[in-house]
Computed example of a mutant assay.
Amino acid sequence: MSDNALYTDLSGYYDLMCVDINYQAQSDAIRRLHQIFGNDGTTHLDLACGTGPHVRHFIDFGYLSSGLDINQPMLDIAATRCPEAQFTLQDMSDFEVNAPQDLITCFLYSIHYNDGIEKLHACISSAHRALKSGGIFCFNAVDKDKIDNGLSVKHSAKQADDSFTFRSGWHYSGQGEKQSLRLSIEKTNAEETQVWNDEHPMVAVSFAELIDLLAPYFEVHVFEHDYEKITSWDSLSGNAIFVCVKK
């Protein structure tokens, strides 16, 4: 299956696949961080916005929110969910905005969809260029050196007469700048069982390497991956939230 084919072909199942995600808590946590570190502005762009659930919450918070993604079927759903927002078909490693933004977000580890260090650096540069003075770039990331290839997450859901089982997990070989997100969807009904498997190439980076990439452009603050409270990163965990203030 080609890169991103799973998301493109099964975009109608994406929200079901992510049903356990607390989008409101994530959005509210980043809004609080923006209030602390930001410039008091309310223009917002969500990178790799998918079907737009985070954009919906930021609009409800009072932001002038927009989104971009590389999959048009996702954006079609996002436009229905958020008719007030502007959505564009763009690659986050090299994107343009019509006007400078106060806040740029990238949720659900999607920063790793930049599938190499060169593209990750280009994304960081694009975000810096797209922000107003004092604007912030917020995203979550995983440290390649802390990935356990044996771990995965699984959940089940029902839609009409179909039962779904979703599985996902990181995989890193232990060297280099490439890791992958392995995804599986099993759909079962009274007549048949169908299974889709996909593997998305993603960038592998340590937090030390990531901070070095960000430092020329941003003042970098790193927090524990906890959307209920704001806690400084303990330098040990392999998941973190990055809050990057434009220099």
Rank of each mutant, 00 (worst) to 15 (best):
G116V: 00
I117W: 03
I117A: 01
E118L: 09
E118I: 12
K119E: 05
L120W: 00
L120M: 13
C123K: 00
S125G: 12
S125C: 14
R129I: 14
A130C: 14
S133D: 14
I136Y: 05
N140Q: 12
A141K: 08
D143T: 09
K144M: 05
I147E: 02
D148N: 11
N149S: 11
V153D: 15
H155A: 11
A157D: 01
Q159D: 12
A160C: 01
D161E: 05
D161K: 01
D162S: 03
F164N: 05
T165D: 13
T165Q: 11
F166R: 01
F166N: 00
W170N: 06
H171N: 12
S173W: 05
S173K: 13
S173P: 05
G174P: 04
G176A: 08
E177K: 04
K178W: 06
Q179T: 02
Q179E: 02
K187Q: 13
E191W: 01
V195H: 04
V195A: 02
V195T: 10
W196P: 00
W196D: 06
N197S: 07
D198P: 04
E199A: 08
H200G: 01
H200R: 11
P201E: 07
M202G: 03
V205L: 11
V205M: 07
V205E: 02
A208H: 15
